[in-house]
Nucleic acid binder design. Structure first.
Lengths: 240, 240
DNA sequence: CGATTGTTTGATCTCTCTCAATGGGCGTGG
DNA sequence: CCACGCCCATTGAGAGAGATCAAACAATCG
């Protein structure tokens, strides 16, 4: 389940994002105190790892932050895609919420000191890290608004666009293929909906001919502008 | 409405947070390209300012990010207290959401380049800024969970604790005085509730003897542990 | 191939929204 | 100073969106 270092991250270095900014000696330094972990789906990262190495770099798969109430209700407040940095350090008190793999996920975890030292000496890495974390703030703000003021159909439409923005997706003759990287029940936890409502919502969007659902984990967007109008609060029963 | 520089920030420098990390020459550099603005309640920051100086440092008052749907529904996805840094730069596309003063608010705004340059040369300022922005991510995650899975009473209880954590508050003989820095209608927009529901909820918490409401903008917490249990999802009608 | 987990559909319930109306606080202007 | 208007808080009654409950079915996995 855990490797000895961060060699794997070099895979990512050739792709995009944070690791690309690192010099080989910096990767070496990070590797010394890092750990590469493969987390099976539905398992969460243990507290000890979080305490010792609170900086997580997603390599593969989807990782979510799951919160739980005392009566068992649980929700996913955010999710992370490959290349994302998750900084679990928290000023006051401990982190509320667990890191959970929504799909089988691979990631590197770093201790805060080593990570900060590397950033301090590598401005471009610092810049990319700041950019990634800043983007998370804006995504979280959008998501909070979605949860606060949108109806189920609107939330689902927004979620489809969020998946589009955050993932690889393919387009062909007017249709856009979007990979939904998690189960419907996880979508529900993320959108503050029950899985039944997620199912009914997607089906309703399909009935309106805005999307097609070849399988639960894939969505083909047939009418982007109309779907966007739904996401932005237009009544779907009105023309346009 | 707008001053010529950021001299006012020196007030803050004597207090806490980001400005305290700055050398006087850095303050000078920032001042040259910054602007101090006093925003009356319910007014929002114009797009031009956001485009030119997307980094905002709250000095006084409460600032919120307000989003609006095409049918007029609006919500506040986050709010900021004095000392907070708001970084409105966004990787893809423009910022969704407006900066709105929830109380009369004073702040400084900086252009991105100057701000980044100062941070690049001042690691401790960089560190404080990162810490502030990181905290925003966690606050946003907590808030998303609140909106997604909590009932109105639970949201209000959580909100009271959020106000407690983010503000000055006074305690006396077992009671905690908490200043609610915004109107009930703003609380509603922030919590995804209607103002009527906010009113009913606070009143219900008062009926349960968890809080006392001397006036709309002040809450006295009488039973912290029980209120915390409500915030964490315990049924308020059960004993304990 | 059995067991567990996830998806779907239908029926009912409930919490919150919506609508409507009243009263209070505050600033404005006479 | 008071009158007026505006915004906000509050209360009540009703409606509706989504939760909940239940059951069948599909998918995944050991």
């Amino acid at each position: 389940m855990s490797g000895t270092g961060c060699r794997r991250c070099r895979l990512l270095a050739s792709n995009r994002g944070f690791c690309r900014q690192l010099q080989s000696d910096e990767i070496e330094r990070l590797s010394l105190n890092s750990r590469s972990t493969l987390l099976p789906r539905k398992t969460s990262l243990d507290c000890q790892t979080i305490a010792e190495r609170p900086i997580v770099l997603t390599i593969e798969g989807i990782i979510g932050i799951q919160h739980t109430l005392s009566d068992g209700r649980s929700g996913i407040s955010a999710f992370y895609t490959p290349g994302d940095i998750i900084d679990l350090r928290r000023r006051s008190g401990s982190v509320r919420g667990n890191l959970v793999a929504l799909t089988p996920a691979q990631f590197c975890s770093f201790d805060a000191e080593t990570f900060d030292n590397v950033l301090k000496q590598n401005p471009s890495a610092q810049h990319v890290a700041s950019e990634i974390l800043r983007e998370q703030i804006h995504l979280a703000a959008d998501h909070s608004f979605d949860l606060g003021k949108k109806r189920s159909l609107e939330r689902l439409a927004s979620f489809i666009f969020e998946c589009q923005n955050r993932q690889r997706h393919t387009a062909s003759n007017g249709s856009i293929n979007i990979e939904v990287p998690m189960r419907h029940c996880d979508v529900g936890e993320y959108l503050g909906l029950q899985p039944e409502t997620v199912s009914r919502g997607f089906r309703e969007l399909a009935r309106l001919k805005l999307i097609v659902l070849p399988e639960p984990s894939r969505i083909v967007v047939k009418n982007t502008s109309k779907l966007r109008r739904v996401a932005n609060g237009a009544r779907s029963d009105l023309p346009g």
